[in-house]
Write a protein that binds this DNA or RNA. Structure first.
Length: 416
RNA sequence: GUGGGUGUAGCUCAGUUGGUAGAGCACUUGGUUGUGGCCCAAGUGGCCGAGGGUUCAAGUCCCUUCACUCACCCCA
């Protein structure tokens, strides 16, 4: 009989990997609130149009990567491919906007994209997502970047680089876009790679990012966004940079940094690692001032970022596994029950430990105690049952100091 | 969606010109009375990813398929 196996690109996360996720989530819940962020828990399923409207019909994510299917009443639903759209929807729907007040929210959990899996890229993957609503100031962008880098640092990640760019606004971006398309059209036909000639109209910014050497070469002379920003955008961008510099953050300006989702405007940034393979982007985000309005909310601006949890897990040091305080070795049949009760009282007192469910030979039980990594082995057999005692042995590596004593079972805690 | 690589014991991998499977680690049990780690011994454990073909004979050769993996693409 064929065994049922998990579907491609979906993972069971357990052991060390699971504890890394817990560490990341705990750090988020500790650090983000220090900046005034509150946690928001979002549904995994949304109406398809939410993503179509926000991310953009023409993007790869919406065009070919979404898990979309009809429900029983034939409504089109989609497993969220990212969190920002849902955050905006929730923000609008729950009327979270308060006049003149900034809202800071974060969430985390699984996202779904139908892509070919590879290192750092799963079909179900996990993101930490952070958004600030109603703060147009460059300081909001800067604070986000500072919080992000400090968060990653506190998780022990090293050798990361921050790349920064501005994509302009609804006013100046179309002009830049046109300048780019004009530039591509001025090139000899077929000089760009197949992918690029396909996307030079649909997503001209992406061409700047192409890895094909010939394209890279040609694109050297392409017009840069930063040269086409309107004065407002330029001013905004400069202020973001100023704050980051004052804060002492090292970053690289990358005028070719492009975001794949349509809603980004002005500030965009990415945190990149050279140590995790081709999917090197660990976190990314930026400003998306028009999105709330597109989704039927007020004229409220927004900025945010997302962190790829699997990707930072790849960069985290292995965590020391937790070892128990005790292991109760049961040496005679009638000791099983007392052993379980003893374990319960120890746990009630805050100790952690494992207890045999059946009796075994002394040797095998001591081996098990050793393997468990427990600090103490508690031996329970006929002798101990008769005298209401327990034998307590320290399992440390101090070879010859055979620390062992038989003590009153009710007073065991005094010896541990 | 396109390429490349890999599927043999729980894990990491050997397997020679085709002759019905091996190592290390792990696991279990021992090395006399109720004491772990080190050492020694024995033992458990494999439809050699699946299906078909060639052959007296296939882990090994051929075809198909599935899975995993890396990269393109895309993105966090």
């Amino acid at each position: 009989m064929d065994r049922i196996q998990k579907i491609k690109g979906f993972a069971d996360i357990f052991g060390i990997e699971a504890s890394k996720f817990v560490t990341i989530e705990t750090a988020a819940r500790t650090i983000f609130p220090r900046y005034g962020f509150e946690e928001l828990r979002l549904p995994l399923l949304e109406k398809t149009e939410l993503f179509a409207k926000s991310i953009g019909e023409e993007t790869d994510v919406v065009g070919k990567e979404m898990y979309t299917f009809p429900d029983r009443k034939n409504r089109s639903l989609t497993m969220r491919p990212e969190a920002t759209a849902g955050m905006c929807r929730a923000f609008i729907e729950n009327k979270m906007h308060k006049q003149g007040k900034v809202s800071k929210l974060f969430t985390f959990g699984p996202m779904f994209r139908y892509e070919r899996p590879q290192k750092g890229r799963m079909r179900q993957f996990h993101q930490l997502d952070v958004e600030i609503f109603a703060a147009p100031e460059p300081a909001a962008d800067a604070e986000l970047i500072l919080m992000l880098t400090s968060f990653l640092e506190q998780l022990g990640l090293k050798n990361l680089s921050v790349e920064l760019n501005s994509l302009g606004c609804a006013k100046c971006r179309p002009l830049y876009r046109k300048a780019l398309v004009d530039f591509y059209n001025s090139l000899a036909t077929d000089s760009l790679c197949a992918d690029c000639s396909r996307r030079k109209e649909s997503n001209p910014l992406r061409v700047l990012d192409c890895k094909v050497p010939e394209c890279k070469e040609l694109v050297q002379n392409a017009p840069l966004v930063t040269e086409h920003l309107c004065t407002e955008c330029q001013e905004h961008f400069i202020q973001v940079q100023n704050i980051l510099s004052v804060a002492g953050l090292k970053y690289t300006l990358n005028p070719r940094l492009v975001r794949g989702l349509d809603y980004y405007q002005r500030t965009t940034f990415e945190v990149v690692s050279g140590d995790i393979g081709a999917q090197s982007s660990v976190a990314g985000g930026g400003r998306y001032d028009g999105l709330i309005k597109t989704l039927g909310g007020g004229d409220i601006c927004a900025t945010g970022f997302a962190i790829g949890m699997e990707r930072i897990a790849l960069l985290m040091d292995e965590l020391e596994p937790q070892t128990p305080d005790f292991y109760i070795a049961v040496v005679d049949d009638n000791a099983v029950e007392p052993a379980l009760l003893l374990a319960q009282t120890l746990r009630a007192a805050g100790k952690s430990g494992i207890c045999d469910f059946v009796k075994g030979s002394m040797k095998s039980r001591m081996r098990a105690a050793d393997k468990s990594g427990a600090e103490y082995a508690l031996i329970l057999g006929n002798d101990e049952i008769a005298n209401n005692t327990v034998t307590l042995k320290y399992m440390g590596k101090t070879g010859d100091a055979q620390e062992q004593q038989t003590v009153d079972r009710n007073k065991i805690l005094e010896f541990m």
